[in-house]
Amino acid sequence: MDLGLNLGYSGSSIGEVLPLVTHADRVGLDSVWAAEAYGSDVVTVLSYLAARTERIKVGSAVMQMPARTPANTAMTAMTLDHLSGGRLLLGLGLSGPQVVEGWHGVPYGKPLGRTREYVEIVRKAIAREEPLSHEGTHYEIPYRGADATGLGKPLKSILHPLRPTIPIYLAAVGPRNTALAAEIADGWLPIFYSPEREAILTEHLDAGLAAAGRDPADLDIAATVYAAAGDDVQACRDRLKPMLALYVGGMGSRDKNFYKDLMVRYGYEAAAQRIQDHYLAGHKAEAAAAVPDELVDEIALVGPLDRIVDRLAAWRESRVGTLILGTQQPEILEPIRDALG
């Protein structure tokens, strides 16, 4: 199992987390990942990290598809891959309707069809085997709409790719998006993964693999697990609960929240509803307090290092190929690396 590091939305604090990243690079972690939502962008952060490290892979978790045309994403990926010496892992995701329509100002549309076409175009552009063209339901290249000039023609990137294929990871939470990731991506980026309940997730993953005739070994499950180490187990749990409350209670609307739906599928329906009710009422402390200890223990790594190392046994037995730590504690990286072998 490979070990990664997740920095989250770290654009404004990159100077603070850089020592953690260089330490991860030095002790042999496989990858470091950064995110974007509606603040700092992920490309700038990864460019900076690639310039300040030597061997660690740099991954986007995720680069938002609605923010960029597929060709722009391909250009960015090829450029970052060159600058990093072939270390890019291209993580893509749709985000949710609130961000897509409320921030980027584009329609959320039909996410499954859009994602399928997007990934196909990105791969074509990077492969550079022929001029880029695509005629689909969601994308038309060259554009030939009613307001087109008629001057567009298929083009090849003037930048030759360092690698003709760059690994593409898809972030997905819902059943159909998860199946699509298994069908078309090189890796899957799940959040709040439960090794004991992974059958709830892999049921849809396996459906996608079967639809594409793919071997499960061809798909890297790269799961982010948040970690908080310390002598007081309850205090460590409580450090992570506000983040969980934000996702379950506030990431989305009352009727459409992918993370709340996942908690319900895990069997925490009553707790998920309490978290959302508190959060949407503006009672964030109460929402955090409503997060069950059992849920934190299940999807995170908390407490003394020996407790965390013992908990890794469940992850080693899971189908996860890359364990991505969400932490800012450099002292836990090497013990976890050694425990994973």
Score class of each variant (00 low, 15 high):
Leu189Gly: 01
Val106Ser: 07
Thr76Lys: 02
Leu80Gly: 00
Ser47Thr: 13
Leu205Tyr: 04
Met243Gly: 09
Asp255Glu: 14
Gly208Tyr: 10
Leu205Ala: 12
Val122Arg: 05
Arg337Thr: 11
Asp231Phe: 02
Ala223Trp: 03
Lys284Val: 10
Asn177Gly: 15
Lys57Arg: 15
Leu88Pro: 04
Leu92Gly: 03
Ser318Phe: 00
Gly174Ile: 01
Asp30His: 10
Pro154Gln: 11
Leu295Pro: 02
Glu183Tyr: 09
Glu36Ser: 03
Gly252Glu: 06
Thr149Arg: 06
Lys156Met: 15
Ile332His: 13
Asn6Cys: 00
Glu294Met: 06
Ala227Met: 14
Ser60Tyr: 04
Val27Asn: 00
Ile121Thr: 04
Glu198Cys: 07
Ile332Thr: 03
Lys156Trp: 12
Arg116Phe: 13
Ile275Val: 15
Gly213Leu: 01
Thr73Tyr: 06
Lys256His: 13
Pro154Phe: 06
Gly11Met: 02
Asp147Gln: 11
Arg316Ala: 14
Gly187Tyr: 01
Ala288Cys: 12
Leu219Asn: 01
Gly152Gln: 11
Tyr48Cys: 08
Ala182Asp: 04
Glu269Arg: 14
Ile336Gln: 08
Val42Ala: 11
Leu305Asp: 12
Met65His: 00
Val62Trp: 02
Gly39Ser: 14
Gln64Glu: 10
Leu29Gly: 03
Lys110Glu: 11
Glu298Met: 12
Ala271Leu: 07
Ala270Cys: 09
Val99Cys: 02
Val302Trp: 09
Gly105Phe: 02
Gly282Cys: 09
Arg55Cys: 07
Thr178Met: 11
Ala339Glu: 06
Ile191Phe: 10
Asp186His: 11
Ala228Gly: 12
Thr137His: 13
Ala228Ile: 11
Lys241Pro: 05
Ala61Pro: 01
Asp306His: 09
Glu203Lys: 12
Gly341Leu: 08
Gly145Pro: 00
Pro195Trp: 05
Arg55Thr: 09
Lys124Gln: 15
Thr79Asp: 10
Ile56Leu: 03
Thr322Phe: 00
Asp206Cys: 07
Leu180Gly: 05
Arg337Asn: 07
Lys156Ser: 04
Leu83Ala: 12
Arg123Tyr: 01
His23Tyr: 14
Ser318Cys: 01
Val264Gln: 12
Arg128Ser: 11
Ala181Glu: 10
Val119Ala: 00
Met78His: 03
Gly187Asn: 13
Val99Lys: 03
Gly4Tyr: 01
Asp147Thr: 15
Ala125Pro: 04
Ala34Met: 11
Asn257His: 06
Pro19Ser: 00
Glu294Lys: 13
Val106Ile: 14
Val32Ile: 05
Ser31Pro: 12
Phe258Pro: 09
Gly150Asn: 08
Val42Ser: 09
Ala229Pro: 08
Arg87Thr: 00
Ala211Ile: 04
Glu334Met: 12
Ala300Gly: 10
Gln329His: 14
Val173Tyr: 07
Glu334Phe: 02
Glu269Ser: 10
Pro66Asn: 14
Ile299Glu: 01
Val100Phe: 09
Val264Thr: 13
Arg311Leu: 12
Gln329Gly: 11
Gln329Phe: 15
Val225Lys: 01
Arg316Asn: 12
Thr115Phe: 06
Leu7Lys: 07
Ala235Ile: 04
Ala271Trp: 05
Gly15Val: 05
